[in-house]
């Protein structure tokens, strides 16, 4: 792939990079403190872990409101609309083509930041898993007010375990996500792009219409 001629395109805006990295720090801290609260290990002490987990969880909630707001204002949410086109090719690429040095079947462009697999994954994450964690986390946090809020039917054990399952899912996502960043044309290419905003893509590739984000009218 390195023999291809590369060009740089500006893919990730300042706010996008800001929320990505803040969110990553928050998620890692939430995972560490969350599993400590769950009793998986001892690091900061239970009270500190709870305190930090609560504070960061609420901080994230505020950040998430801004992220969602940004997505709709900039129409970037359309980058997350799922598609099955070339999904199979992408899966085949990661399971075989990548070892043979074949080019990625879908190229990144300003209007198509995510390949079909990423679209599905990030949509699942942003629209399902993260809100699920936020709702269960917020309810967990408000445990003492359930009766006052008319939520007395909730069960702490069920809620805590749902929140835990969500935590495991995010941890697994994180592992695969971090690994996938190494699959660019160099090991650190994708990570560097997430810092600078500029992604290197092969020059001659054109982006098919279906992949383009619909333009604003």
């Amino acid at each position: 792939m390195s023999e291809h001629k590369m060009k740089k395109i500006y893919l990730y805006s300042k706010f996008e990079r800001f929320w990505h990295w803040v969110q990553s720090v928050l998620i890692i801290l939430l995972l560490v403190t969350g599993f400590e609260v769950h009793g998986s290990f001892e690091l900061l002490g239970f009270m500190k872990a709870v305190d930090i987990h609560n504070t960061i969880g609420l901080t994230w909630l505020i950040l998430f409101v801004f992220i969602v707001f940004w997505m709709f204002v900039t129409h970037e949410y359309k980058q997350y609309i799922p598609t099955t086109k070339k999904l199979f090719e992408v899966a085949m690429y990661y399971s075989s083509g990548i070892f043979k040095g074949e080019p990625h079947p879908v190229q990144k462009s300003k209007n198509a930041k995510h390949n079909p697999m990423q679209r599905l994954t990030y949509l699942g994450l942003t629209a399902v898993l993260l809100p699920f964690q936020m709702v269960t986390g917020l309810l967990y946090w408000a445990y003492n007010d359930w009766a006052d809020w008319g939520l007395g039917f909730l069960d702490l054990e069920v809620l805590a375990l749902l929140h835990l399952i969500g935590g495991f899912a995010i941890l697994i996502f994180l592992i695969v996500h971090v690994y996938m960043t190494t699959t660019g044309h160099t090991i650190t290419a994708h990570i560097a792009a997430m810092f600078s905003g500029w992604e290197e893509v092969p020059e001659e590739e054109t982006v098919p219409d279906w992949e383009r984000k619909a333009e604003r009218h």
Binding site: V37, H38, G39, V50, D155, E157, L161, L164, F168
Partner: peptide, 18 residues
């Protein structure tokens, strides 16, 4: 259920296996 004390081993096992 008390946080930090209780768990369901099946979920722990499945989670860490994943």
């Amino acid at each position: 259920y008390m946080p930090g004390r209780d768990s369901v081993e099946l979920i722990n096992a499945a989670g860490w296996t994943g």
